[in-house]
Amino acid sequence: MTANTLDAAALYDLTRPRPRPRRSAYGILCAVLILGLLAWILSLLFDTGQFIPTKWRPFEYPGTRELLLRGLGITLKAFGSAAVLSPALGFVLATGRLSHHRWVRRPATVVVEFFRALPVLVMIFFVLVVLRAQPLLALVAGLTLHHGSVLAEVFRSGVHCVDRGQREAALALGMRRTRVMSYVLVPQALRAVLPAVAGQLVVILRDTSLGFLITQEEFLHAGRLIASNLDYDLPFIPVVMVISPICIGMCMLLSRSARWVARRERRSPETEAVDVAPAEPGTLLPGGTLTPSRCGGVQ
């Protein structure tokens, strides 16, 4: 081995074909374990009679399907409202926390820290009991206050992640602080924090199930009514097997949509590959120089 090869081996981990079969074996082993776990769970479900027609018969009734669809609609309504109001509140609070005026920054900081520290369920019950609001309004308000405060910190961290030199260059050009924030910092910060915002939206969708505790007729509450109020042998497991894939599918769809938006936001027309025809030898370039000729010199 040459000296350069020895130096590279000392500084870096050289890629070797030996770990590849080992990683393949680990992957196969994990797949076998997962399949074995699924087979064990299915065997338990079959042994306890969870797939007998009697427990699945309630889903044949139009009333049962209507109840599930109505609960799903209320869940999506609560999620849509909170998904719109939470980023709006977070942007307002983040703007207050980034303000250079102390009388704006300190109250915004207190509001963010207060609502971010309180559990979501406490805020939902506070709005429901103290303010005597409707269950849906209490659910949306609790989700908005908590997740809006979390998103405020996400937006603020995104602004601080932008290179400080861009702020200083914009101020040196004579731009006002508000214009620097609006045209220089915020667009770049939104691109940087978009994955975190998407993850927080998934959490909002998951937290809509807390409406079950305040008797809000959302998706989970509808499943509980089906499992407990029918004259059958408590079809709890079939209800879970129907509701869980729908909830997981909605979260996966939301995550994939967020990743697709993030990829489109990262794409820039200025950096995309453009087919440029090669210049002919002897062509005058913008700098006033000539392209080299085929013989290697300059014409």
Rank of each mutant, 00 (worst) to 15 (best):
G90E: 01
F236S: 08
T2S: 08
P195F: 11
C161R: 12
Y61W: 07
G223M: 08
I28Q: 09
Q166M: 07
V186P: 00
L68I: 15
R57F: 11
A82W: 04
Q134N: 13
A88N: 00
P58I: 15
F51S: 01
A277K: 14
V120I: 12
M123C: 13
I214H: 06
M241N: 02
Y12H: 14
V186C: 02
L213E: 02
S99R: 05
A258G: 15
F51M: 03
T144A: 05
A117T: 15
A82M: 07
I248K: 06
G142R: 08
T95V: 04
L38K: 07
A192H: 14
Q188Y: 00
E113T: 10
R102F: 07
Q166I: 01
H146L: 08
L254H: 03
L253I: 13
L151G: 00
S209Q: 04
V110W: 13
A279Y: 12
V276Y: 03
G63M: 08
R132M: 09
L285S: 01
R18Y: 10
A9M: 11
S182I: 01
P21V: 08
S257E: 00
H101M: 08
P62N: 05
V193C: 04
L33F: 10
F212D: 01
G73L: 14
T208A: 05
S43Q: 13
D13F: 05
L68D: 00
R132N: 12
L37N: 03
T208C: 12
I204W: 04
E280Y: 07
R23E: 04
I204Y: 02
M1L: 11
P107F: 08
R23K: 11
G27H: 13
S293H: 06
A31D: 02
L118W: 05
Q166S: 02
L210V: 12
Q188A: 07
A279N: 03
L213A: 11
L220W: 00
P195D: 01
W103L: 10
C30A: 15
G211I: 13
D207N: 12
V186F: 03
A277E: 08
V154I: 14
L254C: 13
R102S: 15
W260M: 14
G249A: 15
A133F: 10
L220A: 09
R22L: 15
E270I: 14
F219N: 01
A88M: 14
V184N: 02
L6A: 14
R57A: 15
V203L: 11
G148L: 07
V122C: 08
L220S: 06
F114C: 03
V32M: 05
T64G: 06
G96I: 05
Y232R: 13
N4M: 09
I237R: 04
R105Y: 05
